[in-house]
Design a protein around this nucleic acid. Sequence first.
RNA 1: AUGGUGGACCGGAUGGUCGCUGGUUCAUUUUAUGAACGAGAGGAAAGUCCGGGCUUCACAGAGCACGAUGGUCGGUAACACCGACCGGCCGUAAGGUCAGGGAUAGUGCAACAGAAAGUAAACCGCCCGCUUGCGGGUAAGGGUGAAACGGUGAGGUAAGAGCUCACCAGCAUGUCAGGUGACUGAUGUGGCUAGGCAAACCCCAUUGGAAGCAAGGCCAAGCAGGAAAGAAGAUGGUUUACCAUCCGGGAGUAGCUCGCUCUCGUCGAUUUCCGGGUAGGCUGCUUGAGGUGGCAAGCAAUUGUCGUCCUAGAUGAAUGACCAUCGUCACUUCGGUGAUGACAGAACCCGGCUUAUGGUCCACCGCUCUC
RNA 2: CGGGGCGUAGCGCAGCCUGGUUAGCGCGUCUGGUUUGGGACCAGAAGGUCGUGAGUUCGAAUCCCACCGCCCCGA
Length: 120
Amino acid sequence: MPEPKTFPKALRLRSPQQFANVYASGIYAADQTLVINLLANGLTTSRMGLSIPKLSGDAPTRNKWKRYCREAFRLQQHDLPVGIDFVVRPRKGAKPVADSVADSLKALLCRGASKLEAGS
RNA sequence: AUGGUGGACCGGAUGGUCGCUGGUUCAUUUUAUGAACGAGAGGAAAGUCCGGGCUUCACAGAGCACGAUGGUCGGUAACACCGACCGGCCGUAAGGUCAGGGAUAGUGCAACAGAAAGUAAACCGCCCGCUUGCGGGUAAGGGUGAAACGGUGAGGUAAGAGCUCACCAGCAUGUCAGGUGACUGAUGUGGCUAGGCAAACCCCAUUGGAAGCAAGGCCAAGCAGGAAAGAAGAUGGUUUACCAUCCGGGAGUAGCUCGCUCUCGUCGAUUUCCGGGUAGGCUGCUUGAGGUGGCAAGCAAUUGUCGUCCUAGAUGAAUGACCAUCGUCACUUCGGUGAUGACAGAACCCGGCUUAUGGUCCACCGCUCUC
RNA sequence: CGGGGCGUAGCGCAGCCUGGUUAGCGCGUCUGGUUUGGGACCAGAAGGUCGUGAGUUCGAAUCCCACCGCCCCGA
């Protein structure tokens, strides 16, 4: 029986306070596609927040970013490190492509998790 | 076939798997979780350029100021929108386009050139006089300019001139006919010339209260106040606390004045400055000038009536990903292969306008060729 | 949702309100002079769709309208 690949509200960051905490940690990882800020949350699951600025493009383009990021997290969530709050934002100038977003998310989270352990 | 003009429509369809948002029902039931069912971006959702609905501000009352609109008639909840018609301009035409009221209400503007740029004016020229350079007459001719105070002909004269006359153009004004009207057609009179720019100020007519769903209403939670400035009282009723009138101060009526409302008059309204708390939930929130089909009225915009349908409500913010079949397009070795797009994403809701953009169809016009 | 401002030479600005004759100023660039050479200095030159498109006017950077881009406020 495979684990359910859902994405309810409990797996999202929803308040300005949560976002501020993540940014305050100062730990991040980046590549050609994405930039991710991380913070250990002490829970058994990871939670994702999205920050798509106006510079990323017009409204349809920003929607694409959000949907690709959510899809990437939903489908891969059981292969990713747990107990992390993180905020995803697109790299300046990058184009929203589904495959590269998924690869980038996984690689950056693994890298960020090891950084968190090293820091603590 | 080719070039053009105007208009209408569409914005892929069906099924499956995994997700997301909110709705209804059921189950567990403290929050919540699960299951089933059915719903889930646009023609422009955009720009925010107009007009409304709705809500609040307490009165929306007057005058001034400020803004908007500007052919006529109609449509509409309303408009700067739409329809029909009238007039000017552009186009061979189909058609397009126009802030399209007023220049004898007033003030103003016109560089350079040119003699002169607006109650006209004499540079050259023409004519007369005296005389070798001036005085007078003259707007027919030259030249300048975007624009120069009507055109043609005849009379007239020293030379000329609407100086006079005829016709034409144009202006003002009256009558008749048609039209609801803008206006059109015909005709008379006047005086011979009145120029352009009001997207220059302005005048005229019509019209506009302001702010916006972060409006507004309800609930929960939470905190701490301090400093400075600061007006004028009087009379009457009279159970020393209120009421009434006058006077004065302040606030509101997002410009000013009046008016109106509220409030205070030393036990201190109010204003300014510093500091402190909250940034949660519910509601407004989707059934509406609503869509769609028939019939009727109207040239049309649109309206009436009957039937039928219920069709997004998010809030770190849903509407997505993959697969199959069909459709469409491109390439093609006719087996297939590839693409499935362009502009673009609801945030209180409608009516328009503007801008962006892929395609299909229809009607009409010009030219050439063929039958 | 509401309000305001800007766009002119490579850069920073003026001119716009009140339309007109060659669209100016500073820095920078180029050429020449001066110097052994450079800098500084002196002389001269080049460089402009006035954001885009329509309109009003004889004439538009200027007035009017629409659009594009950028910036800043308020709730």
